[in-house]
Design a binder for these strands. Structure first.
Lengths: 225, 225
DNA sequence: GCTCGGCGAGAGCGGTGCTCTCGTTCCGGT
DNA sequence: ACCGGAACGAGAGCACCGCTCTCGCCGAGC
């Protein structure tokens, strides 16, 4: 049973993060001002420090929330009953849609690191959610024998995290598959980032069609056909 | 014949950009402080405004210089006499090496856009240099008949810039090749960014070996074998 | 009922980008 | 040769930033 004090504290915390998210969407992460957040919530800047020890901690909160929202979008888009290549493109599309809808949050997650700020370990579980979805798709495809390629051993190349996300050794899953999954994962984000950060301006007319083709090519790269 | 005044102005401008680049390497773009630059050069902050109308203009200068430096590295790494897949991996390696050596400048070029700042048109030629190198490699490979795949028409998908960089229609070059080239370029960027921005920590043990494999996979994706 | 801890407000510190003014210095035309 | 004007550097000042400290308040637990 939370006391009244705890309740109002939780409410105020949520209100602060909501205002911070609004401010993030307006001015970006680097210019996120704790004072402006305080103004929007209607209290003195010093009072915010009762809830977040520093601006960086507020940023960490936003980062974790962002990873969770993106991960949730990816999970919601994945229908385990669908064929693998369809699951792949559905998840890719969901990631892109979320990025286009929340460009500043996406930039916070996958853009330049904020100088002087290093993400704490707390962010790792949330950050892994999209990777886990992709790993599940690949694992299912491999177990169903619908994953071509593979067969290469590259000891010492990958770390434990990759093996954990992409499943233990199983029929059809080896280091070559994991490497290609990682590559597809970073390529997907390269493609989304290029579009979002304006590097495709002038080169691509129809961004939707380009993305669809890119996802198909990357699916083929992984071994989904 | 430049007057003495013009000479000292050019010198001071160069000194300011040099100090700014040093500061950029230390604290990153978002924390780049014009006052600190002025301190390092040894003049009042207001005096710097005689040379750069605003902090953003100083940033633009750094961006153009960065694109030029990266483009130069890519051009230097490309040996037109070598086989295409070797040229591809050499240029990819040069891009990654430059990024690892100048992480903050790379983040400035390919990371989150600075909010409220939009790159002026002046940056486009410098930004295109790496793309042009990649386009030349693909064009040469296509003319030599060493590019597999292609054969797909996707009218209205790509813009003029892509056609310009990747050559007019030629035997072996069509929209499908250009799309894959763009995809390879953004995937390369995604791979480098993931490594640089820390998204591969825990998943990849041997970054050099991973990158080499990624480049090889991407080369195959383009159609180089 | 009283005390003590959480709380909000306000002032203050050193920093930022940017503007304005003021005295100087140098360049070009007469 | 000189003088007017343009370029220049310095300094003060404005509004903002993150963060700290102190102070008065108020509610929850002993």
């Amino acid at each position: 049973m939370p006391t009244a004090r705890e309740r109002v504290r939780a409410e105020l915390t949520a209100e602060i993060t909501a205002a911070a998210r609004r401010q993030l969407a307006e001015v970006g992460a680097a210019a996120l001002s704790l004072r402006a957040v305080a103004r929007e919530v209607g209290m003195a800047s010093s009072a915010v420090y009762r809830y977040f020890p520093s601006r960086d901690d507020l940023l960490t909160r936003l980062i974790i929330d962002g990873y969770d929202a993106l991960g949730e979008a990816a999970e919601a888009a994945d229908d385990p009953a669908a064929p693998p290549e369809q699951r792949w493109s559905a998840v890719c599309g969901a990631v892109r849609d979320w990025a286009l809808a929340h460009p500043h949050e996406y930039a916070l997650l996958y853009g330049s690191p904020v100088p002087g700020y290093s993400a704490p370990q707390d962010t790792v579980p949330a950050a892994s959610r999209v990777g886990i979805v992709l790993g599940r798709i690949l694992g299912d495809a491999a177990r169903a024998g619908r994953l071509s390629g593979g067969g290469v051993r590259v000891p010492g190349l990958l770390g434990d995290a990759a093996v954990e996300v992409l499943g233990q050794d199983a029929p059809g899953i080896d280091d070559a598959v994991r490497v290609r999954a990682l590559l597809a994962w970073s390529s997907l984000f390269g493609t989304v980032s290029f579009e979002l950060f304006g590097h495709l301006v002038g080169s691509v007319e129809d961004a939707d069609a380009y993305f669809a083709r890119a996802v198909a090519e990357l699916g083929a790269l992984i071994g989904l056909d």
